[in-house]
């Protein structure tokens, strides 16, 4: 039995109809292949970076489970054949992170997530894709290395 992390991208229409059924869709599929589910929780609902099967938004379900390595092929095939699961990503992990275990167990049977917004809704904070933005205003890796680079045209020597 190996420990795996499984991230499943669920269709928001299924989640809107019934979140518990959507979660059971994944957990039952894992149990069918003999998995011992450590925890499973709704990781996030967000706008996708690019449309997947015509969907602009989707819900991520993060699961940790133990299963024999031979069952992974079957899980992956079942997830790919199911149209309600848009994407699946299975990764073997050494152990479940303590924070994830805590969050996963905190999501009980009576957990009801907020209903997903409309498909074309835009998140307030778009993912930041930029170059090396330092935290807290300074980056120790960049300190004192680029001192010779002129800050502006005024600093460039005229010949």
């Amino acid at each position: 039995m190996n420990q795996y992390e499984g991230m499943f991208l669920l269709d928001n229409q299924v989640v809107r109809a019934d979140y518990k059924a959507a979660k059971a869709l994944v957990t039952d599929m894992l149990k069918k292949h003999g998995a011992e589910i450590t925890c499973a929780r709704r990781w996030d609902e967000r706008r996708l970076a690019y449309p997947i099967q015509g969907r602009l938004r989707a819900t991520y379900l993060l699961t940790y489970f133990k299963v024999p390595g031979s069952a992974i092929v079957g899980i992956r095939r079942d997830a790919e054949l199911d149209e309600r699961i848009l994407r699946n990503l299975l990764i073997s992990v050494e152990e479940v992170p303590a924070k994830e275990l805590e969050l996963g167990l905190a999501e009980g049977d009576d957990y009801a997530p907020p209903p997903p917004p409309a498909d074309d809704a835009i998140d307030r904070e778009e993912p930041l894709v930029g170059a090396l933005v330092p935290e807290d205003g300074e980056s120790p890796e960049l300190e004192g290395v680029a001192e010779d680079v002129p800050a502006s045209l005024n600093d460039i020597e005229e010949v």
Binding site: E141, L142, V145, A146, E147, V149, L153, I156, E157, V159
Partner: peptide, 19 residues
Amino acid sequence: GMKIAAKPRAPLVPVGRKR
């Protein structure tokens, strides 16, 4: 016209630093 010669640009981060 004046020729402007920029100094050679130093690498931002030295290669090979362990992190």
